[in-house]
């Protein structure tokens, strides 16, 4: 059996945590685990836009890809579970719990049909940043123009009376400095990464996160099957939960560094108090209900899955 090279499609700069701390180290782990039989090579330039990356692996344009489930709205439903509000403060705990839940409850629904699912993971808790006013109560959010990504956060912003601004994340600096948006929803890591600390004045920490973002790491099915059984096992030993742990840890570290940068930039940091959180939880209860309906449509016991995931997160967060 000859040596195999897995080509990873990449759409982020090499300095991004996903590349630097997740995909590249994973590649090394794969090489080690397979004793050099499987090599991992990151392609130097993007092969397509971020939303295209699921298909890029599925169609065999590259062997391994990663991207965000929410970039292709309508395609995935179960994966929205990882984007629900108030999941927790640790990307590591959520990512591992998310992977376990996926294996245990979502496998038979097979939302990642056509590819080999290597792992799923999330970034750190999403908070609210803006340049207009400190947010003390839920009502303070009304009419703020806030850049949001795809996924559940769209529904959340609609519910909270936020004026959603849609723009790709690399445009964050541009839209914040020229007043297209007053603020942005991001994990702490992204603030220094996109160099928007100067454009922001207030950070509103939402305990356990206002939202999250669900990512996948997938591989071309035929390529996976072309590996020997041993190689497959070795590859999976560093993927799945191991990768979720690696990714979550890296996000947590990046978030911690992000918080330091945020404080150094003089952004006023405040945390939503218990009263505000109670109100917020009431307003956002719909998100969970909506997800449970979707899970039902896909033939999954959503309540069981969600309780399992929450319990795992609680266990792992200790």
């Amino acid at each position: 059996h000859a040596e195999t090279t897995l080509r990873v499609a990449n759409w982020l700069p090499p300095t991004h945590p996903i590349m630097k701390d997740m995909v590249v180290p994973w590649g090394k782990m794969v090489e080690e685990a397979t004793k050099g039989k499987v090599k991992v090579e990151v392609l130097p330039a993007p092969l397509g836009a971020p939303p295209a990356h699921f298909d890029i692996a599925k169609d065999g344009i590259a062997d391994v890809t990663y991207s965000v489930h929410g970039y292709t709205p309508g395609r995935f439903a179960l994966t929205d579970v990882a984007e629900l509000p108030f999941l927790g403060n640790s990307a590591e705990a959520i990512s591992i719990a998310y992977w376990r839940t996926t294996e245990k409850y979502f496998a038979k629904a097979d939302e990642h049909k056509g590819v080999k699912l290597l792992s799923v993971f999330v970034h750190g808790p999403g908070h609210i940043f803006n340049a207009k006013r400190p947010i003390k109560a839920v009502g303070d959010l009304k009419d703020l123009k806030i850049r949001v990504g795809g996924g559940i956060i769209n529904d959340i912003s609609k519910e909270l009376g936020i004026v959603p601004i849609h723009a790709p994340s690399p445009k964050s600096y541009e839209i914040l400095t020229n007043g297209v948006a007053d603020g942005i929803m991001f994990p702490s890591e992204s603030v220094p990464f996109f160099k928007i600390d100067k454009a922001l004045k207030y950070m509103t920490e939402v305990p356990d996160g206002l939202y999250n973002t669900s990512f996948f790491l997938v591989m071309n099915q035929a390529k996976f099957e072309s590996l020997s059984k041993d190689e497959q096992a070795a590859l999976m030993s560093v993927s799945g939960e191991a990768f979720a742990r690696l990714a979550g840890k890296a996000w947590d570290a990046a978030d911690a560094a992000g918080m330091t940068a945020i404080k150094a930039a003089g952004i006023e940091v405040s945390k939503l108090d218990d009263a505000a959180m109670a109100e917020l939880k009431k307003r956002l209860a719909f998100a969970e209900a909506k997800w449970l309906d979707k899970a039902k449509e896909r033939g999954v016991d959503g309540l069981a899955a969600l309780s399992y995931m929450r319990a795992e997160i609680a266990k792992l967060s200790k």
Binding site: G70, T72, P73, G74, R75, G150, G151, N154, P164, H166
Partner: peptide, 8 residues
């Protein structure tokens, strides 16, 4: 087959 639609 995917059911892809726009986000908003």
């Amino acid at each position: 087959a995917y059911g892809d639609a726009t986000a908003y």
